[in-house]
Amino acid sequence: MAKAKTNTEDYLRMYAQMVRIRTFEDNANQLYLSAKMPGLTHMYSGEEAVAVGICEALTDDDRITSTHRGHGHCVAKGAEFKQMFCELLGKEEGYCRGKGGSMHIADQSHGNLGANAIVGGSMGIATGSALRAKLQGSDDVTVCFFGDGATAQGLWYEVMNMAALWQLPVIYACENNGYSEYTRTEEIAAGSITARAEAFGIEAHQVDGQDVLAVNGLTRKLVERARKGEGPFFIELMTYRYHGHHVGDINREYYRSKDEEKDWKENRDPIVRFRSWLVAEGIATEEEIEAMNAKIETDASEAVAYAEAAPYPDMSEVDMHVYAD
């Protein structure tokens, strides 16, 4: 069972986890810009309160499925920087021994069933995990993360129907960041997204995805109810990605204005908002917060240096793991 998040320690952990995600992404972006990271990656910066608010309501037994924009989910569910950076650089010590990379990072030990490079590709997996929980009488809950763009995938409607028919312990968490690649959500989604879940009789909520306490409070309630067989649920989290669709999407004014980006960053940043709240409530001082930030930055730099120096997998690994023993 998830613990009630009412004490100082929990608040500070939520703050630290959000900063860890931002710091991880800043370092990952830097690796890309300095041509040290193979391929491309999608930054989670700006959406930290979503992953942290939700994952802080879960235990290690609860599962999540993640997306192409998955570093935030991975960190929030408990992953370590070292193995994550190793994976991003294709190194042997990465979570997937370098075989998956950014878009397929998975962390079995904390219940992260994996990122997915197919938009909506994890909706069946998450719902199947919830079906298993029900069949085996287990009280764990599965959260399925996906973007607003993924609501256009037919698979979602098929699995929502079954999840609702069979009251499965799954929470569909739609991270609505206003864009699906280079297209505004209004141009790809007709009608209301919450109404789509409601059409299947699924209780649907919309929440400010930049407010970690709001996200966490709502998720804790829904997780408790899902454990008791009152699922499934749907949450639409209104949020924003600070970077381009991927790290290489730099000139993006043709689809998104600099003013809009500035407004979200300056007025609605989830970390800045929560930080002021922590100080105002007397939960932490500015000095304590600065010390936390500094510690996280050091951890990240050390993990990056470690990953850069780490070895690639041996060539003989290439045809290992195609089939299980």
């Binding site: 294709g90 690639y312 997998p313 195609v322």
Partner: peptide, 16 residues
Amino acid sequence: AMDVPVPFSPALEDTT
């Protein structure tokens, strides 16, 4: 191409 899913790591991918 080798009969494996395409691996991410450059060290592996180039051999496939």
